[in-house]
Each structure stands twice: as structure tokens, then as C-alpha cells.
């Protein structure tokens, strides 16, 4: 089991994701610098949270031009599992692997809080170990998490069962309470909440573990 974690200038959740991978999967993650050209044939790729390129222009917009992203695009298009968390989700929408966009929070405030979420389906490796009945408590920490997509796009997400996580109490103005979506094929998942921060009782909870548990074959 090889998990690649992409590190951009400004990523700040890469080590947290690495700890979660060690803790949940018992393997050492591989940190891949954004200027590298070789993804080293991983089983899954994680694009962590943070502020890649200082959020210049739009969050995630510059990171898509990093050399390693060509490899990530290839990997995803061939069906490889890719998880984008927070800034990682923003990068996935900017590079076109996921539809829609993440805009400034409706309140204009940075929100750092633990929110209640409902998993909507279990159709991907990142969600198959989850529980659709349970209310998951997972932290969010973002300024631009207000998911937007036009009506047609939203209908497609709904019809194809691509909405993966919904907020129970919408914190940021997201369309249809969306906290996470996947691509049509189900191998690329983007989510604003940080599951890596709740993978250990020592850190106050384990509600995020299922996202990583599914990666075990």
C-alpha cells in the first residue's frame, strides 16, 4: 500500500494526513514535492489542505500548474483514487477533476469549527467504510468553502449520486449543503472537512477514520 501526499508551497495539512495514514493504515506515506515529475506509482493520492501559493488569484488556481499535477491528472483519469481535502478540494475543482467552484464563505468569516455531516452514499473507496446513518463530527477550517455550481450542474451531481457529504447545518452558504463531492466515476473525492484531524481519540474523535480505512484493499 503506497499513499502519495502532494506537498505544495503553503500546504499545511500534509503531515496531519501523513499521521492519519500511519495511524489508520499502518504504512509510511510518501511525500511528493510539487516540483517532482514522478508520482512513484502509488495506490492513492492525497492532496492536503493549506494555502497553496498563498491562495493567490483564487484558492487552488496556481497549484494546478505544478509539474506533479500532470501526473495526478493522468493517475485520476486512469481510475486512480484521489482525495482532496480543503485546499485539495479547491485544487481539484480548479484543475477540472471535479465540477463546480469554492467561493468565499457567505459570512465572509474564516470558519474554524467542528460541524455535523451526513455521508450520502458509500460508492467510493473513501466512503465504503463509512456509515450513512451516523452523524459525523469533523472539523472545518476555511475561508472559501462555499460550494457553487449552476442548476444544471447540481442536477447532474444529484442524479449521478455524486454528492458525498452534506452539512447538517450549512456553515458557509454551500449550494444544497454540499461539503464533499466525487466525480462521476467515483475515484476522485473532494471535501472541505478535515477527516485527518479526527483519526485518533487523543485528538478528540475518530469520525474521520473511515475516509482512510477504505483504502485497505
Amino acid at each position: 500500500m503506497k499513499i502519495a501526499i502532494i506537498v505544495f508551497p503553503g500546504s499545511n495539512c500534509d503531515r496531519d494526513c501523513g499521521r492519519a495514514v500511519q495511524n489508520v493504515l499502518g504504512v509510511e506515506p510518501q511525500y511528493i514535492w510539487h516540483k517532482d515529475h514522478d508520482l512513484q506509482s502509488p495506490d492513492a493520492v492525497i492532496i492536503p489542505g493549506g494555502f497553496s501559493y498563498g491562495d493567490y488569484l483564487r484558492c487552488g488556481s496556481i497549484a494546478q500548474f505544478s509539474p506533479i499535477m500532470n501526473q495526478v491528472l493522468d493517475f485520476a483519469k486512469k481510475g486512480g483514487s484521489v482525495l482532496g481535502i480543503c485546499n485539495g478540494f479547491q485544487i481539484l475543482t480548479e484543475c477540472g477533476l471535479l465540477p463546480g467552484a469554492l467561493m468565499r464563505n457567505k459570512s465572509l468569516h474564516f470558519i474554524c469549527d467542528t460541524v455535523e455531516l451526513k455521508l450520502q452514499n458509500q460508492k467510493s473507496v473513501f466512503t465504503k467504510k463509512g456509515d450513512v446513518q451516523k452523524t459525523h463530527r469533523i472539523p472545518i477550517a476555511h475561508m472559501d468553502g462555499n460550494y457553487f455550481i449552476d442548476e444544471n450542474g447540481l442536477k447532474k451531481l444529484q442524479d449521478n449520486d455524486q454528492i458525498v457529504l452534506r452539512y447538517q447545518h450549512n456553515p458557509n452558504g454551500s449550494v444544497d449543503n454540499i461539503a464533499g463531492i466525487q466525480n462521476k466515476e467515483g475515484n476522485v473525492l473532494g471535501m472541505m472537512p478535515h477527516p485527518e484531524r479526527v483519526c485518533d481519540d487523543l485528538l478528540g474523535g475518530t469520525d474521520g477514520r473511515f475516509v482512510f480505512e477504505g483504502l485497505v484493499a
Binding site: 488569484l57 483564487r58 488556481s61 475543482t93 480548479e94 465540477p99 463546480g100 467552484a101 467561493m103 457553487f148 455550481i149 449552476d150
Partner: peptide, 8 residues
């Protein structure tokens, strides 16, 4: 390609 995000 870059300056605008056509989604929004």
C-alpha cells in the same frame, strides 16, 4: 485558462 474561473 487562468484569469477567470468560467464556473463563476
Amino acid at each position: 485558462k487562468l484569469l477567470a474561473n468560467p464556473v463563476i
